[in-house]
């Protein structure tokens, strides 16, 4: 069937981050009778995972990771009505609200974590850089996040991570979210001191820890 060549093309489109090609190939596969959920689980997810793994090895770069995740989003959006028609739902490991904290404009690390989380199936809300604690908490609630990810690269923005933890406590939301923190000056000791989880030295470690926290991997 043309399903197998469509399968290759979907895979390639995700690797190439080609959102036009991916829609064409997905459409073709649907027409060939491939079930939407198995397309996601057996073709799209593994392709995106491959991109993430290649990034971790240094063979692919951040923009390629972003483009692949964007192509994935387009494909899933296209498949959504097909899933709904069959009353099927995509299983995701969890929802993460990510932010670079107030005062900090170092956002490359956070962007990498966001992209790699998406590559591993997480739904991610990227709140951007220089984000105050109150905004982070409000948006995480609204998004119904499982995890809040905080990124801080300056010793002088670490206090804003503490603020976020305090605010969660004050609002009685402690335990509602798992909070991971990462970035240059963050140490496991500091994370423990403020009651957060240490995210690890790089995005790969961070994603592994978050997967584990969600009972995966």
């Amino acid at each position: 069937m043309s399903g197998s060549s469509a399968r290759d093309r979907i895979h390639q489109a995700i690797i190439d981050g080609d959102d036009k090609m991916v829609v064409g190939a997905v459409e073709e596969a649907i027409e060939a009778g491939v079930a939407p959920l198995s397309m996601i689980n057996e073709i799209l997810n593994p392709a995106l995972k491959e991109v993430g793994d290649r990034f971790n090895k240094g063979d692919m770069y951040l923009p390629e990771l972003i483009l692949s995740a964007e192509a994935m989003e387009v494909a899933v959006k296209f498949l959504q009505p097909h899933l709904e028609a069959r009353e099927e739902r995509i299983e995701i490991p969890g929802k993460v609200a990510m932010a670079t904290v107030q005062g900090d404009i170092h956002d490359i690390g956070k962007n990498i974590v966001c992209a790699l989380l998406r590559a591993n199936g997480f739904e991610v809300l990227d709140l951007g850089r220089d984000v105050p604690a109150a905004t982070i908490v409000a948006k995480a609630e609204e998004f119904e996040a499982d995890i809040i990810g905080l990124s801080a690269l300056l010793s002088t923005t670490l206090p804003y991570c503490r603020d976020t933890m305090e605010l969660l406590k004050e609002k009685g939301l402690e335990g509602r979210f798992k909070v991971f923190i990462g970035g240059g000056p963050v140490t496991p000791e500091f994370a423990e001191e403020i009651g957060a989880e240490y995210g690890g030295a790089h995005a790969e470690a961070g994603v592994t820890r978050m997967l584990r926290a969600q009972g995966r991997g």
Binding site: G103, D104, T156, P159, Y160
Partner: peptide, 21 residues
């Protein structure tokens, strides 16, 4: 280098302590 704590008070980016530091 830079100073991240002055008189026991942590220096926060964009706060008055940045001026002090």
């Amino acid at each position: 280098g830079s100073l991240h704590i002055i008189d026991g008070i942590g220096v926060r980016t964009g706060s008055p302590m940045e001026v002090r530091a």
